[in-house]
Nucleic acid binder design. Structure first.
Lengths: 194, 194
DNA sequence: CAAAAAAATTGACCTATGGTAATAAATCAA
DNA sequence: TTGATTTATTACCATAGGTCAATTTTTTTG
């Protein structure tokens, strides 16, 4: 069948689904191609959708009142991305989402999602478990922020996202770690020395 | 019926449940009374359960390699608490959970929970939505850590947990904010002045 | 390929927060 | 109630990381 059906087999490859169910899913996803540097979402917009990253690299970031950017999350192949706070509560985005590399995404709206949960209960399990993992990883990040120095957090980051460094700028990493690019630069210099 | 049934009506008061379903739930929850200062969970232990706080105040904290405590979460009436990273992944706790005030809890194991999800699908929705809110609040905390100064974070905290200050020590708050008690003390002094 | 733009590095200095230690205040327990 | 213990405050100095500004390196684009 269509590309969408194929993709559904990637997105939900861990689920055992009937042909009917796959079809139903495929009908609800929409493919999206975005070039590098484009914005998928801007603060203030209504958030209807969440996105599955089939290919490429994106980041979610918050712009604070001083105009400084803070990267909340990177997303590569096989990750989901959105402004989830806004997505869940059907409120307006506070985050921005930018393509760091050309990206292929599959989107689905919250409304369709909730309908699908009713029709395919194992889908709700699937996303509950995803949420649980995302929750756990955010918790790890909070602990890391509380307990570790900037250079420890950097090493931590490099470990957790081993393949991401080719894709992202240093200032993306710095804004994820909560430090300036200058500090990151010094940290890297010191690590080479040591 | 039993106290457990009553409690289930508190825990799941927002759900429309049949008598049978309530009974089923009540059978799976166990009541727990804990005195102030007792440990509900210690790092290293297997985590089988999550806990609903019917009364009292608890905190989840991580002890880093230097022996410093970092408070990840407070829980008062109507909140759920556990080392969720361990609970979800059935691994050992990295966190400790302590009663800050005498507490009444209702616990349920992950195993029983998963079985209940199958028997009562709206339960899965219920917890998925809880997870979504918890995820969103963790995300807010990450942003707050990245974008705000210690005193901004403190004001933020006081706003988010308006009734908690009577229950907790300053060093609990400091360890939640990622600062020393001395810094918190200075921040409070400056706020009085301003 | 060259010029322009963007990103990264470095240096000098600054500031918020940490560490240590002493003291004061609050809480607990006999 | 009082003495003991825990918690909070304050002062003084140390330090990680920030700011500003100049320079170098890398990437982009015509």
């Amino acid at each position: 069948m269509s590309i969408a059906t194929e993709l559904v087999e990637i997105i939900f490859k861990d689920l055992t689904l009937t042909f009917k169910e796959k079809q139903l899913l495929a009908q609800n996803f929409k493919k999206l191609n975005l070039p590098k540097h484009s914005l998928l979402l801007e603060a203030g917009q209504q958030v209807y959708d969440q996105y599955f990253v089939a290919d490429g690299c994106l980041r979610t970031y918050y712009i604070d009142p001083d105009g400084k950017e803070h990267t909340v999350q990177f997303a590569i192949e096989d990750w989901w991305i959105s402004d989830y706070t806004a997505f869940f509560s059907s409120s307006n985005a506070v985050m921005n989402i930018e393509c760091i590399q050309d990206a292929t995404l599959f989107k689905i709206s919250k409304k369709d999602m909730e309908l699908l949960y009713l029709k395919i209960p194992k889908l709700e399990s699937f996303f509950r478990k995803k949420m649980e993992r995302a929750f756990a990883s955010f918790q790890k990040r909070i602990i890391s922020n509380l307990a570790q120095s900037a250079s420890e957090r950097y090493l931590n980051f490099v470990n957790s996202y081993p393949n991401i460094e080719q894709n992202v700028k240093n200032y993306h990493i710095a804004s994820y770690l909560g430090i300036t690019t200058q500090s990151l630069s010094r940290i890297r210099k010191d690590l080479v020395k040591a």
